[in-house]
Every structure is written in structure tokens, then in C-alpha cells.
Amino acid sequence: MNIAFFGSSIVSAYWNGAATYYRGIVKALHDMGHHITFYEPNIYERQEYRDIDDPDYCKVVVYQKNQEMLRNILIEASEADVIIKASGVGAYDELLEFEVAHMKKENNLVIFWDVDAPATLDRIENDASDSFGMLIPYYDYILTYGGGQAVIDAYKRNGAQKCIPVYNALDTDTHFPVTPKPRFEGTLAFLGNRLPDREERVEEFFLKPAAALSDYHFLLGGSGWKDKEMPENVDYLGHVYTKDHNALNCTPAAVLNISRNSMAKYGFSPATRVFEAAGAGACIITDYWEGIDYFFEPDKEILVARNGEEVTELLRNLTPQKAQEIGEAAYKKVLSEHTYQHRAALLQSIFNQSKTIASQVQA
């Protein structure tokens, strides 16, 4: 199938947490024989902070913030068998949502792929006039980055024909165990951009334990934290490029996952970095959210904390042997159940089912 995909960026992870998610999904679809064109806007200096060159698993079309150029691209994309509009493209989102929803034909699929479903649902359910809320019934499928039954029910309540979570996963080509790097040595590392929906939880689950464990070494990576007040035992790394993620996951005793408020509220929303860290064999400590045990077994494959005090206690009791055992167990689980090949197989079943239905209708 020919697939047109409108997203934030597939070549740059700069202020773009969905980059590795897009890469893993698109690469796995390409390996199944699909042809993907990924359309992304030239905004937020992402092209200047690329992590990768144009990949061989899709055609990348970078467009300027120009409506006339976008109109020509939309005409081109309308000929695809599957047309996907992801949330949070960052430029002309409302226009893209409207145009893709109205590209529906008898023999194609139009899909809205929500990479931040909790935030989208909170917005549309608090504003009956929201432009996207009125478009939901026009899409064949709403695919979501996570959210479980709560998100499915909420989307159906707002008129979705079908809503299916396509969870984050591991890209085994890019994330794997590597030799530790001295610059990432420490007790606990957290990697995440500074966002209003996450900052309070970073203070609770990361900075508070750092303050309580002054003899331990903590590492903070991600954009936006430079002017944040933090304990002296926290080493701020700034933006960490994707090529260094494996070493950052492999080197410290443990890595921390902190959900955004909206993700924790709906549950079943593991961040991409959970699977990346597991794929590197890291010992992961995560804040609690409903559905953790759907992905990893607590205490055996992942450690779970409900507040900063529990993170502190987990670190005090974490031995090198225990950290290694948890990391190895998480690594085995993610390879067996949570790779992007597993997610692409789900997408293929969606495409196959839709093709079957279309053939029956035409007959």
C-alpha cells in the first residue's frame, strides 16, 4: 500500500518526543512492503537539529509553513491508499485535520493518529466547539499512542467509528545494549523535555529523591531545564541526541520514567523511552500508572514508585545484582512482546480487514 503520513518530524527528535515512535512504526511498515511518504513541516529548528538523514524506509517531504505549498502536498497525498494525520504536527493542524478527514473514498482509509490522546480528549470534552471534535466521525480509524479502554471509550463517546491503541515499542535496530560511557555514570538518570504537564512530577519523582540522597549522583537530560533550580548532585546534560540514548540507558544503576499528568490520568500510556530503556537492558523505575502490568511485571521486570519517597527507598535498596536482574528480565519481555514488528502486525490486520470490507462493498 501507498501510505501518506503527516507528522511532526521523523528526522529530528528535537522537541519531538514522537520521533522514535514514528521511526519504529514506519520502518516496520516498510519492511512489510508498504511505501510511506512522511510529510513534516520545517519548524522549531528541527531540520537544524536532525538526528538522522532521510531514511531509506520512507520518502521524507519537508514543507515550509506556506499554505499554497501545503495545498499541493495535500493533492499529492490524496492519491494514497492510506492517509494518516497525526496529532501535534505543529503547523496547520486544523487545516490538515479537516482536509484529511474529507479525503475519504470507497477504496482508501483516512486515519487520525493521536500521539497525545489524553490531552486531545481533555480539550475536546471541555470545548463542544472544538474543530477536531466535530471531525472525529469522518475518520475510518482513530489510532492512539496509548490510553487503554478509558481512551477508547472516550473517543467512541465523541463519535469515533473505531479506536485502537497502537502502543510504543522497541526498535531493535536502534536501541540495544552497548558499552557504558563514563559521562553517564550515576545512580539514576531521567531523560525528558521540560513540559508544564510533567514538571511537577519531575520535582516529586526525581529532584526530591536527589535532594534526599546527597551522596548519590543523578543525571537529567532533555531540553528546557537549564534554569531549573536543582540539587548540586544533579548533573544536567541538556539535549541528549538519539545516538547517545543507549549509553544513557545502559550506564547508570537505574533510569527513571516519569509520565505526564494527562498520561498518568488515563493510564496504559508507557512512554517510548520505557521500551528504549528496556531494549538496552536498563533497570527501570517508573511512576505508577494504571496498566503497567499489561506491559511489564512489577518488581521483576520494572520497579514502581507512587511518590518521591518510594523512589528514594528503591534506590537505597537497589544492589548492582538486583538492577542487572531487572534489566535482563525487561529486555527479554520487550523482545518477546513489544517490538515495532508486533505493532506493525496489528496495523497490517487493520489494513487487511478494511480491504476485505471494501471488496465486499464493491461486490
Rank of each mutant, 00 (worst) to 15 (best):
G148S: 09
Y331L: 14
D51R: 01
N317T: 12
N2R: 15
N158R: 15
A305Y: 01
T272C: 06
D116A: 11
P165F: 06
I142D: 01
D31I: 08
S87F: 03
Y14R: 02
E328L: 13
F38S: 02
N42Y: 09
K332M: 08
N307P: 02
T286F: 00
I73V: 13
P298I: 08
Y288E: 11
G17L: 03
E68D: 12
L303T: 08
A86E: 04
R343N: 02
A189Y: 07
F296M: 14
L346K: 14
S87E: 02
E297H: 09
I73M: 10
K65F: 00
E313S: 14
T187K: 13
L347H: 04
Y14Q: 09
D287R: 10
A101W: 01
G327N: 03
D127K: 11
V61T: 09
Q149M: 15
F184A: 09
I10L: 14
L220C: 07
L109K: 03
E204K: 12
P165A: 06
L237T: 05
A358R: 08
I75G: 04
E76W: 05
G267V: 04
Q149G: 04
I350S: 08
L29M: 15
L135K: 04
G221M: 04
M32D: 11
K243S: 13
V110W: 01
Y155R: 03
M103Y: 10
E40N: 10
R194W: 11
E125M: 15
F132Y: 15
H217M: 07
V62N: 06
I75Y: 13
Q47A: 09
E125G: 03
R316H: 10
P182G: 00
E125Q: 15
A329K: 04
D153N: 14
E199V: 15
S8K: 14
I10R: 03
S354G: 00
W225P: 00
G224S: 07
D51Q: 03
V234W: 07
R306F: 10
H217L: 11
F275N: 00
T272R: 00
K59D: 09
F112G: 00
V61P: 01
Q149D: 15
G291L: 07
Q324K: 15
D197F: 12
L74N: 03
P270H: 08
W113F: 15
L256T: 05
G279D: 09
K59Q: 13
S87L: 04
D81V: 03
E45N: 13
L207S: 02
I124H: 08
F205A: 08
C58L: 02
E48P: 00
E79P: 00
A271L: 14
I152Y: 11
P270Q: 05
E97L: 07
I43G: 08
V166S: 03
I302F: 06
Y145R: 05
D93Q: 06
N246F: 03
D293F: 04
S359F: 09
L109Q: 10
Q348D: 14
W225S: 01
Y138K: 12
Q360S: 10
L303N: 04
G279S: 06
K300H: 10
E79V: 06
R306G: 13
G159C: 06
D244F: 05
C283I: 06
D130K: 08
F268C: 11
I258G: 06
R316N: 12
R50Q: 12
V62E: 05
A128Q: 12
V100N: 01
E229Y: 12
I292R: 02
S269K: 04
E106H: 12
A344V: 07
G327T: 05
L347Y: 12
L170I: 13
E97S: 11
